[in-house]
Computed example of a mutant assay.
Amino acid sequence: MSAVPYPVLEPIIRRALEEDLSGGDVTSLSCIDADATARAVMRAREAGVAAGLDAALLSFRLVEPSLRVEALKRDGDPLEGGDDVLAVSGNARTILMAERTALNFATHLSGVASLTARYVEAVAGTGAKISPTRKTLPGLRALQKAAVEAGGGSPHRFALGDAVMIKDNHIAASGGIAEAIERARKAGGHMRRISVEVDTLDQLDIALDAGPDVILLDNFSNKALAEAVTRNQGRAVLEASGGVNLSTVRGIAERGVDVISVGALTHSAPALDLGLDFEA
């Protein structure tokens, strides 16, 4: 079963194909016989973690349902350079029509999963979870969030309606941390979790008195993170954010926070090098 439900996945792939095929594939139509057939393999050219394979498979199937497409790996599988990821066979023209769209999804999403896996490995043994943010590419959030999980990351809020997340501008507009939390608690009922962002230890103390479920420690130094964990005494889930990269994430995790959110997982992940090779 796809990590992204078909009713969500299919329109995304259709839009991408429509963008690429709006003028037809003049190269394939002019150079390749209409009845020519071929077999091609999507292959990893470097090590990483597979993701986005459902999107790649569906790219081929939507262009030509008669194509025979087979996944040779699953999302979350580790890849080495030279590993075969999927195979497709059938009409050569239609394989080429879908090639770039399939590769665009697979290379980008495998890149997201691969970068996530590096962060997860960097904090191994600390107990901290690596989580994405809403800094996703428009229209691709469902796929990018699934790719983070394929890389070992932990889910975060998907959209604005999933949980209350009170940030600095909400605090400024509502009159203060305690006021914002109280208003959110009254409006949200018992089923909705409340998170609040703080910038200082003094703000942390105010937040702790107000009793949110999650406190986001924004751009805290490692020393301040350790103090925040001490003051919290397990009352709220502590999430660290800001200034996180592969060289700093281990030190942040070692201070005892529960979650580390990293926007770069989705907005700055380099593509994983995959290619589609026709077999002789």
Rank of each mutant, 00 (worst) to 15 (best):
Q233Y: 01
Q203P: 01
D83K: 05
V63C: 02
A3T: 12
G23Q: 14
S110N: 09
E99C: 07
A180V: 11
D213Y: 06
A87I: 10
S195I: 12
S241F: 08
S59I: 06
S110C: 07
A47M: 08
M97Y: 07
A98E: 07
V63S: 02
S241L: 10
L109S: 02
V229N: 04
G189H: 06
G242W: 09
R45C: 05
V214I: 15
A184V: 09
D75H: 04
V26Y: 13
L143H: 07
L225D: 05
T230A: 13
N222W: 00
C31K: 01
Q144L: 09
E182C: 14
A146G: 04
V244R: 13
T126W: 06
E279I: 14
M42P: 00
A224D: 15
E254M: 13
A38C: 09
S195K: 01
R61K: 15
A226L: 07
S66E: 15
H267F: 10
L217M: 06
A55N: 03
A264I: 03
G256I: 08
G81C: 00
E227C: 02
R235V: 15
M97A: 10
G24M: 05
I171T: 13
S59F: 12
G76L: 06
G275Q: 08
G256M: 11
N222A: 10
V214L: 12
E70N: 07
I177S: 02
M42N: 01
F60P: 00
K186Q: 15
L115T: 05
A150K: 00
K73S: 13
E19W: 03
G275S: 15
I13L: 05
G111D: 06
L58V: 02
R39G: 00
D205C: 06
E254W: 01
P138C: 04
R39W: 03
G251N: 11
V69W: 05
A40F: 02
H108F: 09
A98M: 03
L103M: 01
I206D: 14
G153E: 06
G48H: 03
L217A: 04
